[in-house]
């Protein structure tokens, strides 16, 4: 049942992107289970009928280009309609390639320029503490964007301010835009690096919902912020896209499309339907 829901999310992401022929599909596929765990497996507290509840948990997608995964999950929980989803990147509509707080209900921060989301989340976590709110802040960061120096400013201040209400999930898919992260930046161990900054570190298979949820629900008994290093596969769910840097921002050609359709269980009819959807129906 859960596997089917996860497959449906990937299918929806692909079919939403396909008519536009421009989207970060592999980056979105990398975080499907993480978002499912947060929004659909009881980790985050939120109220779909009161999105402005001051005590809600907040989710921030710091790697804003994986927006389609967020839209798909917001669609699944009933915040974004199917009709709205079909407006993705269409002129005259507001659902864009990067998440935007002003334009999409349920989005807590506008991101797109990498390295901003964690600092923004630190600010929310500080405000929630000041207001004595039980709300927590979950920030999903990419393994590439932590090369931005400002991320480490945020890492230091989260520890300084004892933000035990802040949880970072590192989508460690080992790939970034131009290639493998190991070729771009010499990295030994994320685990040790974050621990050295005082964070509580956990590591998990980022595609195993059961494991993710168990770790995300773990009580934080310290006064330190937490990071969960989620070992993920970029492009997870389509064999030719998995762990292949070429697919950072690419749509399948005719022959590749057959693999996508087969592995995502998409029929010819569904593909034609997706192409024919007119956002004017909204």
């Amino acid at each position: 049942m859960q596997n089917q829901e996860l497959s449906s999310l990937r299918k929806k992401i692909f079919l939403t992107a396909y008519p536009i022929k421009a989207a970060h599909i592999a980056s979105a596929f990398s975080i499907v289970e993480i978002l499912y765990s947060l929004y659909c497996d009881g980790v985050m507290h939120y109220n779909v009928t009161n999105l402005n509840d001051p005590d809600r948990d907040r989710f921030i997608l710091s790697k804003g280009h994986a927006s389609l995964a967020v839209y798909a999950i917001l669609n699944k929980i009933g915040i974004i309609s199917d009709a709205e989803l079909s407006t993705f990147c269409r002129p005259g509509y507001s659902l864009g390639g990067e998440v935007n707080i002003n334009e999409t209900a349920g989005v807590e921060a506008t991101t797109g320029s990498l390295g901003h989301g964690l600092s923004f989340g630190v600010g929310i976590a500080l405000a929630l503490k000041k207001k004595k709110s039980p709300g927590k802040v979950y920030v999903l960061v990419g393994n590439g964007e932590i090369q931005e120096g400002v991320m480490w400013e945020a890492v230091m201040t989260a520890y300084k301010f004892k933000l035990d209400n802040l949880v970072v999930i590192l989508d460690d898919n080992k790939v970034q835009k131009m290639g493998f992260t190991r070729d771009t930046m010499r990295i030994d161990s994320w685990n040790e690096r974050w621990a050295a900054f005082g964070w509580i570190v956990d590591e998990t298979d980022g595609h195993n919902v059961e494991q993710l949820t168990a770790i995300l629900k773990k009580k934080n008994n310290s006064d330190c912020p937490r990071i969960i290093i989620a070992n993920t596969v970029k492009g997870k769910g389509v064999s030719i896209m998995e762990n292949n840097p070429d697919w950072h921002f690419k749509m399948p050609y005719r022959r590749e499309l057959k693999v996508f359709m087969k592995e995502l269980n998409i029929s010819e009819e569904e593909l034609e339907d997706a192409k024919s959807i007119s956002p004017c129906a909204l």
């Binding site: 001051p54 707080i101 807590e108 921060a109 901003h116 600092s119 923004f120 989340g121 630190v122 600010g123 929310i124 976590a125 500080l126 405000a127 929630l128 000041k130 207001k131 709110s133 400002v150 400013e153 945020a154 230091m156 201040t157 300084k160």
Partner: peptide, 21 residues
Amino acid sequence: DFGIGEENMVAAAAGMASAGL
């Protein structure tokens, strides 16, 4: 006091404002 890190401080200010400060 965010320490010597203006970018982080400004983005955190935005986050604080989003939660009502």
